[in-house]
Design a protein around this nucleic acid. Structure first.
Length: 454
RNA sequence: GGCGACGUAGCCAAGUGGCCUAAGGCAGAGGUUUGCAAAACCUCCAUUCGGCGGUUCGAAUCCGCCCGUCGCCUCCA
C-alpha cells in the first residue's frame, strides 16, 4: 500500500515495522462539542484502520484526549465546574458521536491527566540530556539543540522567526522554544513535579503517550493538516531527543481541513457545525458518503446540499442489497473484479473516492444482473463487505416513522391494496400520500407492496 | 514577508506524461417497466481540464508567467 508521507512529501510503500501496525492519532482538546471537521479527521484514520485490518494486518490505534489546557480551564471557570467535570462531559459526548457515526473505536483513548507520571518522567529525562531547561517553574524545550528541527514542516528556524507572530515569553531562552511544563496559577489544576505545581505543555503529552502505548518508533502518526506545525514538529523533536532514535513516526499522515464558507472550520473562528446536529437529520452513511466524495488530503467545503445528495446515494447502495430471487440458471454474478479494483484504489494512498466509484459500479452490476434474474447473493455479500470496510452501515435513518406503530402502517397498506384491487386509484394514491407524509415510502412490485422509511 | 496546496461538466469530485475522444455521485433529457408513481435498467449529458506561453512524437498531467481560492507560520482535527 502506498501512503503519502508528509515528512518526505511523497507517496511511499507502507510496510509496518513489526507484527502489528502502530498508529497514533492526535485527538481532541475536550472543551466543546465535536464538530464535523474533527469527525473528518477521526473517520480518515478509522477507515485506514479498518482497511489495514481487512487486508490482514493487526492494528493498534491510539487516540488521545487533551484534557488539561488553558481553554478547558477558562471554560470550566466560566461554567463554575471543575476542569475534570467539563472534560469528562465532552468525552462522554465524543463517544456518543462516535457511536452515531459508526466509528470503530480506537484501541485505547489515553488522557493527558492520566499519563502524568509518564509525562513528568519524559520531561525530566529531556532536562537530564540537555535538551530542555527549567525557567521560573516552567520547563522549555531548546529547539536549537535539534539540528533537524523543521524537517516535517519543511522550514528552517530562520523562516519561522520571520513569521513574527511570536509572542516571546519571558522565561524562554529563544523565541521558538516551546513549553514542556507550565507553572500553574492559583486555582488552576496543578500536578506536583520537580519544577513546580503545574501542568504539561500541549505537545509533550502525545510523545509520552505514544511512547507508553506504542513504543519508541511508531508506524503511522496522524492528525489534521493544521497540526503539522508546530504540534507535530515539536513532537518529533522532543521524541527523538528522548528516545535517541533517528525517527519518531515512520509515516506522517495529515487530512485536509473542512471549510465553512471558505474558511477553515474552527472553534476559535466560531464557524462550527456539530456532529450532533448533522446526525439529527442525516444518516451516518450519508455523512460518510459526503466525506468520501473527496480525497482525504484535499480540503472539503461544508455543503448542506451535499449531505442531501449523499443521502440519496446511500439509498442507492441500500437498495442494491435488498434480497432478489434468481430466476435464471446462468452463472451467479462474480464480484472479484470489483474487489480487485477496490483494493487498487485503496492501496493508492487511500483513494476512497475512487473506491466508491468501484462500489457504485458494483451496485449497477448487481441491479442489472438481478433484473435479468441472475443470482446476485454473493455479489451482494461482497458489496456489504466492501462498504463495511468504509464504515457504512447500510441501515436506514430512523425518523418519526421509527416511533410509529407498524400495525398502523400495515393497516393503511391493506386499505390501499384493497382500493387498488377495486381499481380505485384515487383512494390508493391518497393513502400513499398520507404514508409519505408520515415518512413512509412505498414500493409496488408484482410480489406486493413494501415500505421503507424516508 | 516565508513555506505549501488547489482551480476538471449545472453542482460535488477522481484522474498528475500515451489505456483520457476524462471515473463515480447528484441534478437534467429521452426510453423500458408501472394503474400512476417510486426504485431499477438502457441511451444521452466536458473534443475538454482557470488564462497565456513553452518542453515533448504526445500534456488535464512537466516547466514559466499571470489570474483566482485556501492552509500553516506557537489556540486549532
Amino acid at each position: 500500500m502506498q501512503l503519502y508521507n508528509t515528512l518526505t512529501r511523497h507517496k511511499e510503500e507502507f510496510v509496518p515495522a513489526g507484527d502489528e501496525v502502530t498508529m497514533y492519532v492526535c485527538g481532541l482538546t475536550v472543551y466543546d462539542d465535536m464538530h464535523i471537521g474533527h469527525a473528518l479527521g477521526t473517520i480518515t484514520f478509522e477507515v485506514l484502520h479498518r482497511y489495514l485490518e481487512w487486508r490482514g494486518y493487526k492494528v493498534k490505534r491510539i487516540q488521545n484526549f487533551t484534557d488539561v489546557d488553558d481553554k478547558i480551564i477558562n471554560r470550566a471557570q466560566k461554567e463554575e465546574i471543575s476542569s475534570e467535570e467539563l472534560s469528562q462531559s465532552y468525552i462522554d459526548a465524543f463517544f456518543d458521536d462516535m457511536a452515531g457515526l459508526n466509528v470503530m473505536l480506537a484501541t485505547e483513548y489515553p488522557r493527558a491527566t492520566q499519563s502524568m507520571d509518564q509525562i513528568i518522567a519524559v520531561i525530566a529525562d529531556l532536562i537530564e540530556k540537555g535538551f530542555a531547561y527549567e525557567s521560573e517553574g516552567s520547563v522549555y524545550f531548546d529547539v536549537r539543540k535539534d539540528k533537524t528541527y523543521g524537517e516535517l514542516s519543511h522550514r528552517s528556524l530562520d523562516d519561522m522567526l520571520q513569521g513574527t507572530r511570536f509572542d516571546p515569553e519571558p522565561g524562554k531562552n529563544y523565541p521558538a522554544d516551546f513549553a514542556l511544563w507550565k507553572l500553574s496559577k492559583d486555582g488552576e489544576p496543578a500536578w506536583e513535579s520537580p519544577w513546580s505545581d503545574g501542568r504539561p505543555g500541549w505537545h509533550i503529552e502525545c510523545s509520552a503517550m505514544a511512547y507508553e502505548h506504542l513504543g519508541k518508533v511508531i508506524d503511522i502518526h496522524g492528525g489534521g493538516l493544521d497540526l503539522v506545525f508546530p504540534h507535530h514538529e515539536n513532537e518529533i523533536s522532543q521524541s527523538k531527543a528522548f528516545t535517541s532514535e533517528d525517527t519518531f513516526a515512520r509515516f506522517w499522515m495529515h487530512n485536509g481541513m473542512l471549510r465553512l464558507s471558505g474558511e477553515k472550520m474552527s472553534k476559535s473562528i466560531g464557524n462550527i457545525v456539530r456532529v450532533h446536529d448533522v446526525l439529527a437529520d442525516h444518516s451516518s452513511d450519508a455523512f460518510r458518503l459526503w466525506i468520501y466524495t473527496s480525497h482525504y488530503r484535499s480540503p472539503l467545503l461544508y455543503d448542506q446540499q451535499g449531505l442531501d445528495v449523499a443521502e440519496r446515494a446511500a439509498r442507492r447502495i441500500r437498495t442494491a442489497i435488498v434480497p432478489r430471487d434468481a430466476t435464471s440458471d446462468s452463472t451467479p454474478l462474480a464480484a472479484g473484479e470489483f474487489e480487485d479494483r477496490f483494493i487498487a484504489a485503496m492501496d493508492d494512498d487511500m483513494n476512497v473516492p475512487q473506491a466508491m466509484a468501484v462500489v457504485f459500479d458494483l451496485v449497477r452490476d448487481i441491479n442489472r444482473s438481478a433484473d435479468a434474474g441472475v443470482d446476485v447473493v454473493a455479489a451482494q455479500d461482497k458489496l456489504r463487505e466492501l462498504t463495511s470496510v468504509l464504515g457504512l452501515t447500510l441501515e436506514e435513518l430512523a425518523t418519526e416513522a421509527g416511533d410509529l406503530d407498524e400495525s398502523v402502517i400495515q393497516g393503511l397498506l391493506d386499505q390501499r391494496a384493497e382500493s387498488r384491487a377495486q381499481r380505485d386509484f384515487a383512494a390508493a394514491d391518497r393513502i400513499r400520500d398520507e404514508l409519505q407524509a408520515m415518512g413512509v415510502a412505498i414500493t409496488d412490485s408484482p410480489d406486493g407492496t413494501t415500505w421503507s422509511r424516508t
